[in-house]
Each structure stands twice: as structure tokens, then as C-alpha cells.
Computed example of a mutant assay.
Amino acid sequence: MRTADDTSIRRIDLPLDTAMKAAADQGKGFALRDATSLGRYISPAYAGNFKACFEKQKPNLRAVDFFAVRRSEKCPLRVGDDIPPGKTPKVLGVSLRTAVHQLVEAGFAPDHISVDTLDEAGNRTNERHWSWEVCTQNPTAGTPFSADLKPKLVVEASCSGD
């Protein structure tokens, strides 16, 4: 993953939300990237749960790339280093809204999460009922994270077989 211009990547150790605010205060845009080889999606909504390990200035764009890990993780020695993958969270029985938040926080990109909503008769509907509960999840809870996985949730007003 290292490239010839990696010398422009500077090690920092700041809470991600602090680094984002500093960039915004300087009138810069920013992109959030996983500092590891896992390729996790880093959501600005959960910046408080991450720390910026590295930054790469993009002076022509007045922007900066931040490379981050969870606050509970150690920063890798270099951008793209391997770390053990986390586990897919259990989202069965929680609301669709909560499930999506948990999956995004785990590193899944929102556009990789698909949802099937079933009405009372078990027919698929195009409506999103954010308060309905997740009855089926794939991958199952505990599956090692992979950016290639595309989580699929099935939600219903009430899961049968409880």
C-alpha cells in the first residue's frame, strides 16, 4: 500500500474529531481513511470513537487526508499495516436505525449495507421502517470484518419465532 510519496504522510496522534475541527478551522476539507490494511469505512458521525494516526496534506486542494484507527487500537507503524480484524456486531432484535449505526461504526460502508423490509404478510416492501427490528442478518454476528462483505438485513414489524 505504500507509495513513492509516502514521505508526505506525517505521524500525528490526535482524537479524530479534534483533527477534523483543526482542519475545518484552517478552511481545509478532509477525507477520512482507515490507517490499517482492513479498509474500514470511517464515518465522520463517529469521529469521537477514533484517533488520527497520520495525516497527508493536499495543498493544491486545501485539504488533508486523515488515517485513523479506533481509540481502543494502537496506531500502526505505517499506513496500511495489518491488524487483526474486528468482529461483525450482533444486530438481531434491534431497530434498523441502531443496526445500521452499529454496522457503520464497525467499519462497513453505508452503501454496502442492504435492507429488505417485509410487511405483515411477509412480502417485500420498498418502505424503510427505521424502528422495525432486524430479524435476519448476514454476515452473522462474530464474523471477522472484511471490507468486501456486504451486510444484508431483513427487518419486520415483529420477528416471528421469538
Rank of each mutant, 00 (worst) to 15 (best):
D81A: 15
D81M: 13
D81Q: 14
D82P: 04
D82T: 11
D82H: 10
D82F: 12
D82C: 00
I83R: 14
I83N: 01
P85V: 03
P85Q: 06
P85C: 06
G86H: 08
G86W: 09
K87Y: 07
T88S: 12
V91E: 01
V91C: 01
V91I: 09
L92R: 05
L92M: 05
L92S: 06
G93V: 10
V94N: 04
S95H: 09
L96C: 09
L96F: 11
L96G: 09
R97S: 09
A99K: 07
A99D: 10
Q102H: 15
Q102N: 14
Q102K: 15
Q102E: 12
L103G: 01
V104N: 02
V104T: 15
V104Q: 13
A106T: 14
A106L: 04
G107M: 07
A109T: 11
P110E: 06
D111F: 15
D111S: 14
H112N: 07
H112M: 05
H112Q: 05
H112T: 15
V115T: 14
V115I: 11
D116C: 00
T117S: 15
T117V: 04
L118T: 15
E120V: 11
E120Q: 08
G122C: 03
G122I: 09
N123F: 03
R124P: 08
E127N: 03
E127P: 00
R128N: 05
R128H: 08
R128Y: 07
W130C: 00
S131N: 11
S131T: 13
V134T: 13
C135A: 01
C135R: 01
Q137Y: 04
Q137N: 02
P139T: 11
T140C: 02
A141K: 12
P144H: 08
A147R: 12
A147E: 04
D148S: 05
D148F: 10
L149P: 01
